[in-house]
């Protein structure tokens, strides 16, 4: 038992190292800016979904309001930089910390709610924040914030001439989110979360501090999500409430994990690698006329995967492996 556990961990680490090495080499061969753009987004959503998965997948607290933390990360960075000239790196850490604190403050009342009441509470809270930012004049209200252009450097985290630095940051972010999950899933927290997800009452009776473990998951998840928002603000260099805090983002963060395999280490990565390029490609090839074909393709895919592979696409791989070892 212990042996296969160690084997699984070693295999996961090797796979991750392999994928990272291959991914790091790809931009040396793929020079097309459009394709690089899709790769950056794919990595970003893989990392975001990985972060969402900590709270939604492992701990079982389905949040459809993570756009709040994404937006807080983006706004903290953009506001600090454009109003006070504070470097984005401080905004990134600051936004992460603010989000983690807010996630715990919101978790305090929300984690008493169960099922749909919890899900709707997360949607509603993110929506309130969205409406407030939409009306907050100092933060640019509906017009948003144009991030002032300085010199291209890692210090200002601005690169107007090349997408490559963003690509490598996104890759690093993805690796960090993966490693955090990898480490947490087999720590005592990981076991607590699964116990809380499967049966909170039983977990409580066995001495798992249900409430605290939900709070921990929320804080880690929110921190990482805000880092993603902060990155996104630098990447697109213009943000408004619609583009960083709308419900749409909450879904885009949850979807890859759900499609790939919720509560699994590789699910979010797999889901993002399939979903994000597909969305971007359908949007630019057939959805250009604004006639909704991209939505039809994308929605159909979600329905089909939800119905045919409720455990996520990752199930395809584990089945194959089981068959091979027999």
């Amino acid at each position: 038992m212990d042996n296969s556990f160690a084997q699984r961990r070693r295999r996961d680490l090797l796979l991750a190292a392999g994928f990272t090495a291959v991914a790091a080499l790809v931009p040396l061969f793929v020079k097309d800016v459009y394709v690089q753009n899709i790769m950056v987004l794919t990595l970003m959503y893989a990392a975001l979904s990985q972060s969402w998965n900590i709270l939604g997948g492992y701990c079982g607290q389905i949040s459809l309001g993570h756009a709040l933390y994404f937006g807080l990360g983006a706004y903290t960075t953009a506001l600090l930089f454009s109003k006070f000239g504070v470097l984005p790196w401080f905004g990134m850490i600051g936004g992460g910390l603010i989000s983690a604190v807010i996630a715990m403050a919101l978790g305090y009342p929300c984690f008493r709610l169960r099922g749909h009441y919890f899900v709707i509470a997360t949607i509603v809270i993110a929506e309130i924040a969205y409406l407030l930012f939409l009306n907050w004049d100092w933060a640019g209200a509906a017009l948003g914030i144009d991030i002032p252009v300085r010199t291209d450097s890692w210090l200002t985290f601005q690169f107007t001439r090349s997408k490559l630095p963003y690509f490598y940051f996104a890759l690093g972010f993805c690796v960090v989110a993966w490693l955090v999950t990898f480490w947490l899933q087999d720590s005592k927290w990981g076991y607590w979360w699964r116990a809380v997800k499967d049966n909170p009452d039983a977990a409580e009776s066995l001495g798992v501090v249900v409430f605290n473990s939900k709070m921990g998951a929320a804080a880690v998840s929110a921190f990482l999500t805000a880092v993603g928002g902060s990155f996104y603000a630098q990447f697109v260099s213009y943000i408004d409430p619609e583009s960083v805090m709308s419900f749409h983002f909450s879904l885009l963060m949850a979807l890859p994990a759900v499609l790939g395999g919720i509560g699994t280490l590789w699910g979010p990565v797999l889901g993002a690698v399939i979903l994000i390029p597909l969305t971007e490609l359908t949007r630019s090839f057939i959805g250009g006329s604004g006639r909704g074909v991209d939505l039809i393709v994308y929605g159909t895919l979600i329905v089909l995967i939800a119905l045919a592979r409720p455990e996520g696409l990752i199930g395809l791989f584990s089945r194959k492996r089981k068959g091979a070892s027999r």
Partner: peptide, 27 residues
């Protein structure tokens, strides 16, 4: 009928349907 993640499957099956319906309406 889903055996795993019943709650999520229902959310995303109906949500996917919503996206398809919106796309069809736009189309």
């Amino acid at each position: 009928r889903a055996k795993a993640n019943v709650g999520m499957v229902q959310i995303f099956a109906t949500f996917g349907l919503a996206i398809v319906m919106r796309g069809l309406a736009q189309f």
